[in-house]
Design a protein around this nucleic acid. Sequence first.
DNA 1: CATGAATGAGTATTCATTCAT
DNA 2: GATGAATGAATACTCATTCAT
Lengths: 190, 190, 190, 190
Amino acid sequence: MTDRQDRPLRADAARNRARLLAAATEVFTTRGTAVPTEEIARAAGVGVGTLFRHFPTKEALLQAVMVGRLEEVAARVAELAAGQDPADAFFGCFRLVVESSVGKGEFTRALAEAGVDAHAALHGPSEAIRGGLTALLESAQRAGAVRPGLAVPELIALLVAAGAAVERLGTDAEARDRVLTVITDGLRPR
Amino acid sequence: MTDRQDRPLRADAARNRARLLAAATEVFTTRGTAVPTEEIARAAGVGVGTLFRHFPTKEALLQAVMVGRLEEVAARVAELAAGQDPADAFFGCFRLVVESSVGKGEFTRALAEAGVDAHAALHGPSEAIRGGLTALLESAQRAGAVRPGLAVPELIALLVAAGAAVERLGTDAEARDRVLTVITDGLRPR
Amino acid sequence: MTDRQDRPLRADAARNRARLLAAATEVFTTRGTAVPTEEIARAAGVGVGTLFRHFPTKEALLQAVMVGRLEEVAARVAELAAGQDPADAFFGCFRLVVESSVGKGEFTRALAEAGVDAHAALHGPSEAIRGGLTALLESAQRAGAVRPGLAVPELIALLVAAGAAVERLGTDAEARDRVLTVITDGLRPR
Amino acid sequence: MTDRQDRPLRADAARNRARLLAAATEVFTTRGTAVPTEEIARAAGVGVGTLFRHFPTKEALLQAVMVGRLEEVAARVAELAAGQDPADAFFGCFRLVVESSVGKGEFTRALAEAGVDAHAALHGPSEAIRGGLTALLESAQRAGAVRPGLAVPELIALLVAAGAAVERLGTDAEARDRVLTVITDGLRPR
DNA sequence: CATGAATGAGTATTCATTCAT
DNA sequence: GATGAATGAATACTCATTCAT
C-alpha cells in the first residue's frame, strides 16, 4: 500500500529526488510559488532537466511538496491520537499542527484543502489527517474537554485560522501563545 | 511635495479612475493577483494605457484597491467605536470586520499587513483601523468583557485568522457562526 | 466578403503585419518551418511580442503565409482562365503554378492540401484554386487538348509532382523544361 | 580507413542494431523525423544509451534508415535491369520505384538526393541506383521506347514527382494509375 | 488625455547527447 | 555492452510597461 510499485529508483536518482523535494519545500514556503523552476533546480544542485524528469510539471512538484507536508502532519496526528488522555491528545495535536505550519505559506492552503481534496494526489494524506482529527475530536468531546456541536470541518477551519494568525505574529513567541490560548480556550465547553 | 501636484482631475478622468478601481477590486478579489493588467483594463472599459496613466504600476493599482477596502473598514470601525456599550461595540466590530473580508482573498493579507505597514501607501488607513481597534479593545478590556493581556497585534492576528477560517467554510452559515463563537468566546476573560 | 470586419488596422500595425508576413514567407520557404520565431521577428525588424500579437501562434503565422501564397496562385489561375484559347490557358496555368511553387518547400504541401483542406483557414483560397482549375481542365478537355478521364484531384497531384520535380532540378532550366514537357505531353490525349 | 574497425559485432549487439533500424524505419516513415530519440529506443525495446552507441547521432540513424531503403530499391532495380525487354524493364522499374516509396514520406527526399548525394553515407547505394537507372534508361532509349534527350537527373526528378503525386492520392488506386499513366506516357517518344 | 501597438525580459518545458551505474 | 538518469541549450509564448498615433 505504501510500497512504490514504480521500480526501486536508483540510488543517485533517489538522492536527487529528495534534494529537489527539500529545495522546493524550502523555496516554495519561504518565497512563494512564483519562484522559477530553474532556481529550484539550482538550489537542489541539479539541472532543470532533472527536475522535470522527476516532476513532469511545476504544479506536480508543488503537489509533491504538499503531500510530503501533509504526510508528516498525518503521522504526528496519528501518533498523538495514540496517547492516553483525550484532552491532552487533542490540544497537543492542535498546537502541533499549527506550529508545524508556521512559515509554510502555501502549505496552509493545502491543509485547508484537506477538507476539500482539490487535487487527487492529496487525497491519501488528507484522508489520513481527517481520520486522525475525527478520532481526536470525538474522544475529546466525549471526555468533555471540547465543546460539542463542533465537527471536523470547523476544526480544520480553526487550524487554518490559527496557522494564519500565528504566522502573522512572526517571532513573538509570547503573542503567539496568547493567540493560541484564545482559540484553544474558545474550543473548551462554555 | 508641497505643490499640489494633483490637479482636480477632469470629470472623465475621474470616472475612468473609479471604473478601474472597481474593476480591479472585483477582478483581484475573485481571481487573484495574477490576472493580466490588460484584462483589468478591459473589464473597466478602458485601454491599458489609461490604466497605467492612473496607476504607474500594477502593484500601485493593487495597493489602491487595498487602501479602498481598508478605508471602508476603518470607517465602520470608527462608527461602531462611537456606540455605547463597550462589549457590544467590540464584538460587533470583530464580526463585522471578519464578515467584510469574506471572499476577499488577497484582502485579508492586506488587513494583516495593517499591523506591519509593508507598503507606505497603506499607512494612513492602517493607522486609522489600528487606532479604532485600540480604542475598542481597551474599553472592552476595561469593561471586563475581553481578557486582559491581549494587545492590538494579537487582535489583528485573530481577525485575520477568523477571516481565513470563515472564508474556508464558504456558504455554511451555521459552521461559520460556530467558528466565530469559538474565537469570540476565547476572547472573553477566563 | 473580403472586407476585413476587424477594424481598419492602424497604419504602423498594418506595416508590421506585412513585414512579418514577408519575412516569414521568405524564411519559411528558404529554411523550413523549424526556424525560431525570434529569428523571424528579427528578420521583420520587430520584437517577438509583436509577432505574437499579430499571429497568436507560430502555426497561425505559417497558415497565414500559406493563405497568402494560395491567394496569389488563385488570382493568377482566375486571370488565365479568362484568356481565350482553352489549351493555352490550361497549359499556361499548369506551368505557372508549377513555377510559382519552386523553392517554396512547405508551400507545395499546402497546395497539395487544396484538395483536402486540412486547416479551415486555407479553405477559402483552396476553394478558389480548385474552382479555377476545374474550369480550366474541363474546357481544355472539351477542346480535346487534355485527355479525358482526368479529374481535379489527379491534376493537383500532378501539379504537386511537377513542383517537386522542378524543385529538385534547381537551376538547370533546360532540365526543368524537359521534365515539364514530359508531364504536359503526358496530359495530352493519346 | 583501411583498418577493419568494425569487429564482427556480438550477436546481441547485432540484434539490437537491427531492432533499432527497424523501429526507426517504422517510426520515421509514419510519424516523421521529429519524433524523440527516446521513443524510437523504446519502440526498439532498448535504452537511449544503446541507440547512441550504435548511431552516434540522430542524423546518423536517419541516414542509416535511408541507406537501407535505397539498398532495397537498388537491388530491385538491378534485378529488373537484368530482364529481357528494355521497354518492359524500364517502365516496370519506374512503377516499382514509385510504388515502393508510397507512404514513405521522408524517404522520397532521400531518393531525390540520390541525384545529389548530400550525405556521403548515401553515396554507395545512390551510386548503385544511378548505375542501374542509367543502364535501364539508355537501353530503353536505344530501343525507341523512351524519348531521347532525357538524362538520369530528369528521370530521378520524375520518380520523385511521381512518388509525391501517388502519395497524395492515397488509397484511390484508379487515380494513382491515371497519374502514373500520364507520366509514363509522357516519357514515351512524341 | 485615451488608445492599443510594440517591446523584450522572463518562464516552463523538451530533447539530443553524455556518463555513472 | 546496456541502461536510463542527468544535463542544459533551445524555444514558444506571456505580460508589465512604454510610446506613437
